[in-house]
Design a protein around this nucleic acid. Sequence first.
DNA 1: ATGCCGGATGTAATCGATTACATTTTCATC
DNA 2: GATGAAAATGTAATCGATTACATCCGGCAT
Lengths: 348, 348
Amino acid sequence: MAKRPRVTRPGAAKIADVARLAGVSVATVSRTLARPEVVIEETRTRVLAAVRETGYTPNISARNLRVRKTMVVLVAVPDIANTFFAEVLEGIDDTLSAAGYGLIIANLAGSPEKEARYVDLVCAGQVDGVLLLCGHVMRSPNRDLRDARVPLVAACEYISGESFPQVTIDNIGTASEAVRHLVELGHRSIAYLSGPKSNILEQQRFAGYRQALQGTGIAVDEGLILRGDFTFRTGVDAGRALLGLKPAARPTALFAANDEMAIGLIKTVHAAGLQVPKDLSVVGFDGIAYSNYCEPTLTTVVQPRRDLGATAAAELIALMTTGRAPIRKGTQLPAKLILRDSTCRPPA
Amino acid sequence: MAKRPRVTRPGAAKIADVARLAGVSVATVSRTLARPEVVIEETRTRVLAAVRETGYTPNISARNLRVRKTMVVLVAVPDIANTFFAEVLEGIDDTLSAAGYGLIIANLAGSPEKEARYVDLVCAGQVDGVLLLCGHVMRSPNRDLRDARVPLVAACEYISGESFPQVTIDNIGTASEAVRHLVELGHRSIAYLSGPKSNILEQQRFAGYRQALQGTGIAVDEGLILRGDFTFRTGVDAGRALLGLKPAARPTALFAANDEMAIGLIKTVHAAGLQVPKDLSVVGFDGIAYSNYCEPTLTTVVQPRRDLGATAAAELIALMTTGRAPIRKGTQLPAKLILRDSTCRPPA
DNA sequence: ATGCCGGATGTAATCGATTACATTTTCATC
DNA sequence: GATGAAAATGTAATCGATTACATCCGGCAT
């Protein structure tokens, strides 16, 4: 059998090859690429020609090793299959990739093992910054994201007691506005469909609900508070619970802590013959794409999803490049209540 | 002003520090971590203690530079906000991150600039492999993904004429099965709502539609072919077009090339007073989560989304680790027609 | 002519790991 | 106790870029 010949790696043109071909030193090549103005015209064209001819691209690992950067940021998402986050991700991706950063998406999916793996990744210096959409500072059994001296920015889900920049919307205010809309339509009996109690968004949206009622003197009725966990399925369950109430005790309107649950609930009560909005007005929260497809289309608080992502990404870039300097600690973007077909005046 | 003291970078414990503390050479430390069995018990515990004490984690850039690997794969998605791909991504993420790979998500979003940037990234050797969900081999003005000698695997959207592994479903067969279901219910006038003509999935699903009709002697009626581009909006438009037909010419059933369009169409015809499925049976394709939430729930071909992702990821891992050896060039996963509430016998 | 200045380029150290090869240690066997 | 093979460890080259510092050179003021 013939001796296997030492394979000359084909793709690999290194800086030394370019230097040799151009008849200059490696330093000159590097400078030509990094700061063209410090090298005279003639050398520059020679070097660039050599670069083209060899098809040279710098080895990023080597560069990273030298300059202690990775040009990668990690973004932690609770669940990538959730369309809300998908659109936030688009905004993040636009901004970050335009600035030359790569994106590692950490899909937490409720798995502590995954979370720990990603924490280790960050602590190992694999990334230049982290974007947290997950409502908490990621941890592993032995350590915490803060141990990695890496810039952090949170978005969408506020993380209380932290000093890094956060980009959110005014959940309390807009939730309150949504409920006020129902009150103004004339509703006096307004149910609330909650998220998981421990979730910060749930707490804020519920606070908005209470606040709106307070202003009008309507008491918060514990019997009108339905429990869910932000998923479609619990919306369906809540719909059944609502149908179980004696007709006299039934609310004429409902505010759901997010769209998915609202849609699940509507589907259920429809199947039982109750009409939305004629018999029951429903308001959601988030403004997911589907809220505009479902039947009836959903009155909801539309979050600026792309913008939330883009703004958070911009703050992170600022942090990463200027080293320090959080621009503002808490940025709030405007969210808007959009009136669609799921709300109307209560039956007379 | 006081001279700024040379800041001793805090996080950075390097292998030499560990070696010193443990009283061994750097080689031993490296070996202890990579192949513990070649180092004797006693040294090993000493080294591990030193690792713990210093909080050492290997610098990945340095390692990558040395071993010419990055442990990162790039996955190219047409549109990350599309829930179909989001779930495929979950499967990919599960498999890849369990094997220790990081994931860079290239959200093409129809932007050639972005695509070019990612091609350059890959050509620069930034990733160990690429997963293509985008139906074509990515290009930039000057080059093509094949120029980067990097393992490729395609999934979901078949790329014809290529020799790398591909993981898809049998689009023709299942589309045909879906239409056959309508025929078996007794429909004789079955419309087709298409995707963009140039798309391979569209071509295959349309082929399935024709094939099913051929078997039964029903002719393909050009007047019953509605054009769309896979988006909800064009589904709505197609619904209007359908309503514009004279009642006598209206089909009793429709097969849509994907779920989003089917749902848009149903919404439109409902608004006009047509009942689905009583007046019109509808079958979709993909089985997105929403197909089970909408009203009526959609009879559709459910693709094994997670599994498509996981399988493609596994093939890529095989390719990356064994160097060569495509296991099988074309893997087809089973997709299933799920009967729900949007189909029934035609009106008598 | 001399010296100095500054712009262009080159030399070589450096980033932090992996690993081929060299060296030392261990230990079974004669 | 000598011998050699195998096991454990150490030494130093290497991956491919960036960049501090050194060098060279031309021009200008004295």
